[in-house]
């Protein structure tokens, strides 16, 4: 067993874990943040995308021990309060950017990172950036519209 200390959504946690435990399993099952979904466990579908020190990463491609000392953000970090949505979340609802909801957490975290990097992306840039997140329901256009609709103020202060 290995001790791991990391910060998740602003809270510092310490756990003892096996060296081989995937970060995705650690987040979901040991820390209880089940909003991070697992869709392929080989780094392709993007459902488990979280932010690691602000950069998007596949939680299924990291071991929990690799996250020692790092700052993690999951979908649970987005909403400012239990009864309010983050602007990106609101944009997804307003634009019907989700259907079954399974890819949504990863898509939202990717969207947050891309808007932090580029406050005024073009449609093509958005499509390129989210091409690493599979959605089987929407056909993507509504997700693209949602991301493009997020106001510049929000884009600049992620």
């Amino acid at each position: 067993m290995v001790d791991v200390t990391l910060t998740i959504n602003g809270t510092t946690v310490s756990r003892s874990t096996t060296p081989r435990r995937l970060l995705s399993d650690f987040i979901r099952e040991d820390l209880g943040y089940t909003g991070t979904h697992v869709g392929c466990e080989h780094g392709y579908c993007g459902a488990c995308t979280i932010l690691v020190d602000g950069e998007p990463a596949r939680a299924c491609l990291m071991l929990a021990v690799q996250a020692d000392g790092l700052q993690l953000e999951t979908v649970e970090s987005l909403a400012p309060s239990p009864d309010a949505l983050h602007e990106i979340q609101q944009a997804f609802q307003d634009n019907h950017g989700l259907q079954c909801g399974f890819c949504t957490p990863g898509m939202l975290m990717t969207a947050k990172a891309l808007l932090a990097d580029n406050a005024t992306p073009t449609e093509e840039e958005v499509r390129e950036q989210i091409a690493g997140n599979l959605c089987r329901c929407t056909g993507y256009s509504q997700i693209v519209d949602a991301i493009l609709s997020v106001g510049p103020v929000v884009r600049e202060t992620p």
Binding site: Y33, H37, V75, E76, C100, G101
Partner: peptide
């Protein structure tokens, strides 16, 4: 109408089978 189910999916509070303990 905006979808009633969206807020729980958007906030990571959907409950799929793998989320049950």
């Amino acid at each position: 109408a905006a979808r009633s189910e969206d807020p729980r999916f958007l906030t990571g509070q959907g409950r799929y089978v793998a989320d049950l303990t």
